[in-house]
Design a protein around this nucleic acid. Sequence first.
DNA 1: CGAACATGCAGTGAA
DNA 2: TCACTGCATGTTCGA
Length: 722
Amino acid sequence: MKSMHVAANAGDLAEDCGILAGDGDEAILMDGMDEVGGEIWLDDHGGDHGHGDDDLIVHHDPSLFYGDLPTLPDFPCMSSSSSSSTSPAPVNAIVSSASSSSAASSSTSSAASWAILRSDGEDPAPNQNQYGSGKCDESSGALQSTASMEIPLDTSQGFGCGEGGGDCIDMMETFGYMDLLDSNEFFDTSAIFSQDDDTPNPNLMDQTLERQQQDQVVVPMMDNNSGGDMQMMNSSLEQDDDLATVFLEWLKNNKETVSAEDLRKVKIKKATIESAARRLGGGKEAMKQLLKLILEWVQTNHLQRRRTTTITNNNNNLSYQQSFQQDPFQNPNPNNNNLIPPSDQTCFSPSTWVPPPPPQQAFVSDPGFGYMPAPNYPQPPPEYLPLLESPQSWPPPPQSGPMPHQQFPMPPNSQYNQFGEPTGFTGYNMNPYQYPYIPPGQMRDQRLLRLCSSATKEARKKRMARQRRFLSHHHRHNNNNSTNQQNQNQVGETCTAAVAPQLNPVTTTTTGGTWMYWPNVPSVPPPQLPPPMETQLQTMDRASSAASAMPRQQVVPDRRQGWKPEKNLRFLLQKVLKQSDVGNLGRIVLPKKEAETHLPELEARDGISLAMEDIGTSRVWNMRYRFWPNNKSRMYLLENTGDFVKTNGLQEGDFIVIYSDVKCGKYLIRGVKVRQPTGQKQEAPPSSAAAAKRQNKSQRNINNNSPSANVVVASPTSQTVK
DNA sequence: CGAACATGCAGTGAA
DNA sequence: TCACTGCATGTTCGA
């Protein structure tokens, strides 16, 4: 089926663009989730902590993870990566060959070649996030379309592409796109629209505009006047007739909700259409298919947004605009407000977007695929949108040094979203599982918004169906593509705040041979304690033992009711820090296997920049992920880690854990202090090389053995707060 | 024995 | 001189 072909190609393009259609999400859906996922410990869940083993919750009931608080995927294995790795054979991130070289150019060109759908950006059409968040986000449209759609800038909201958005829009407008309707004269649909006076729901239409333009309503893709873009499409009258039929059919079905103005704003580049048609097999059928796809998109996205807007507005005082004037990412937990100042939210996602669920969002672009924004995908709130710049507009990153709290200036490399792929299209995530975080405090509003987002049962059904298709699609491609998805965003984005509050940095304190984690949240009693080390380690152990049967990275599946998508952190790797890692070299050697498996594939030894959000401090460190040739192999390094190590007070023997947010694809890093019992503290570096060796050896043993054997969880009475 | 990794150390450039 | 970069080499461990 051609539409499937489109979908498949869309996936290809996604890969080419370094965007994986939620492959990381596939992990969520992996079979056997319960076996490992069920053992995922609860992180910071317990308000009361330190009550002994009773608190060592090893949850076998994954449903527990769908509580209000997120969980951290467990460490399936302890650091010394290679030996304990239970992950599947390394799956190199798929990096398009085009990727590594010219980020800016490729992103530009890709942006230029996207199918351009112009949506009604002027109305605060809420994003119908059919996949869970229920946010009605006006910004959604803008975000969705940062590159692929022409978005009217709403400066009052500060979104669009920011400056970059301006760029991208200008760029879009620079290129010759075609209007679906403008100046087309094949079909006069005015008859259809003229009935709009009787439109049952006047709110769904801009009747004024509509009437004004009735005379101009014509069939899309038949534009001969605007540049003669579509000659190829109307090469034969028969073809036109077929297209007309399809279009008229659609118009009839949607006459209540679509206006001429709506359609007028749908613009698609000629080259895009041509290419799409070719990809669809060419000819009349291809054009029909393409038209259907476009119309479906218009219907599901644009029109639903409009509906949602209407409903939202009717819910007076709850325009979704307003709803986002409150920082949707604000930390609902006042105790954790220090974690992420909303203003510091770094939410743009240069490599965020993932291919849409097939088939209707995928569009062939020239030279590759473009994507019509998937309808109703979550969008960052407007206040973050200025950060959602098109890649080409991002400021160049400093050449060295961590960049905490920077607005994710993306390094040249990262313009091709960390797989080295051009992210010509950024700023929104089409991954249906990438939900914006909804603070509990806003749940009421969110419910309303969700209401509006599923304004019609039809729309809801469609969304659900699409989601199912998407899920199955992902599941099929899980193994091959898992890396890419997690790589799709190397920078923080909208879900930053979603995870940070729950992932309090922890330190391990020991007393008399007992270890425990202790939240690092200053001055406030930790509302939730991370799982005790033992719990984690038990999990690791079990995960390890089960490793042969299943892939290592598993995340809480989202197929359950109550899934809280914002909680999906995916464990990527961890590394017990060696002296050389915490020294002044500012670099950490990463375990090779895990690095190759879970981090973007590196084509050049210079590697790529990775924005790593420090889970503990919410700071974002611009680290460099690279490799050195080493014998016939490679040595993978994370550079610019010096400040991170200092900030977290990490020392030899501590470890770092790197996660990816499966929703956003961004990377999160967590420094975990491990302090051995008094008298054996590793605070001081080994005084001699021999001592260092001994320590290293000991450390290796820790790494390679089941850690749980080495750890005793403190009883509450023996806990000491570091 | 080879792969992975820790780290020593030489080369380079900036202060 | 110092910091940084990057390569080379030694060590450890698993196959």
